[in-house]
Simulated assay, not measured.
Amino acid sequence: MNKRAFLQLLQKRDTGRLSAREKSLLLQVLDRLQRRELSWDLDTEDAAEIQQRIKGKIDRRIQASPKRNYFLRPLQLAASVALLIGLVFLVYQVLQTPTEVVWEERSTNERQKATITLPDGSLAYLNTNTSLRFPLKFEPGQRLVELDGEAFFEVVADKAAVFEVQSQGVRTKVLGTSFNVKAHRESAVKVAVQHGSVAVYQQGMEKETRVNLQPNQMATVFPDRREIRVEAVDPEGFLAWKAQSVSFDLATFEEVIHRLAAIYNYSIEIEGEGLDRCQIKATYTNGNLYAVLHGLKNLVDFDIKKTGERKVTLYFNRCID
């Protein structure tokens, strides 16, 4: 039974239209509420409605009692008041019982990206090798998510509820904006703003350090020291990983690899000589690093070896004419 059906049963009970079956069902629900087996989010309005109905029924009973029962009337009144106090206490307990927050986690691997719709309608675009944790339902006044990796957020504006991203000891707080957070483990955390304004906090032992960012600004937070560096950036640069394609216009093979390392957050080493002789003019679908590398093999002869998590070594052989 849901909350609305419960309130409707109380209303039918007030007007004397409750059937025997419904009366039994109502008693079962009250018993389950008392044992905290139901976790409805009763707001103040609902609680007041329940209390008012109970009080109204008690008042009607008192007014309807025969005046000649002078001895029984105080007992009936005491019993009714006791019932009211008991049910009000029950409603209070339901309101005060904390609702368990259920979290969900979405992850991408080295060949995946993802778009996640959050409970408030905000969007999170996940880059490769990224994990995002968020509640199935945001708590009132707070929208909190946890990030390990890189994601771009388009946050629905809500002045009553701050949107907060926690990542590697850094908190990023907004009300409604679009921004990018790169927060891989053992690396500096980078927060860049496309639209709106963002507050970035670096958590410390005694106090937090805070900076405010405006559009086209990026904060770099170093985990091993209390320092936040702010600089102007080009949105196309920090959002290159999110674009539909990646293009190169007569760039050297070494320049191409360095750009790919930044886009996909990989450590890429190149071994070989004559890298500057290969000029790359091509456009590739921006799927994942390995897809682009295999496309480049049509223009450059090189071998690929994965050497660790987000680490690759390329062995250059020659340019393909």
Rank of each mutant, 00 (worst) to 15 (best):
L10S: 01
L10G: 01
Q11L: 02
K12T: 00
K12V: 04
T15L: 06
G16A: 01
L18W: 00
E22H: 04
K23Q: 00
S24W: 05
S24C: 03
Q28H: 06
Q28A: 04
V29N: 04
L30H: 04
R32K: 11
R35Q: 14
R36H: 11
L42E: 08
D43C: 02
D43R: 08
T44S: 14
T44E: 15
D46E: 12
A48S: 05
A48Q: 08
E49K: 13
I50G: 02
Q51F: 10
Q52G: 01
R53N: 01
I54E: 06
I54L: 09
I54K: 09
K55S: 05
K57C: 05
I58Q: 14
R61M: 08
I62W: 07
Q63T: 02
A64V: 02
P66R: 07
R68C: 00
Y70D: 09
F71Q: 06
R73V: 04
P74R: 10
L75Y: 09
A78S: 13
A82T: 11
L84T: 00
G86Q: 13
L87G: 00
L87T: 10
V88Y: 15
V91D: 07
Q93F: 09
V94Y: 11
L95N: 12
V101W: 15
V101H: 15
V102A: 14
W103N: 08
W103R: 10
E104H: 08
E105D: 14
R106H: 14
T108F: 08
N109M: 08
R111G: 07
Q112R: 09
Q112L: 06
K113N: 11
A114I: 00
T115C: 03
G121S: 05
Y125T: 10
Y125F: 14
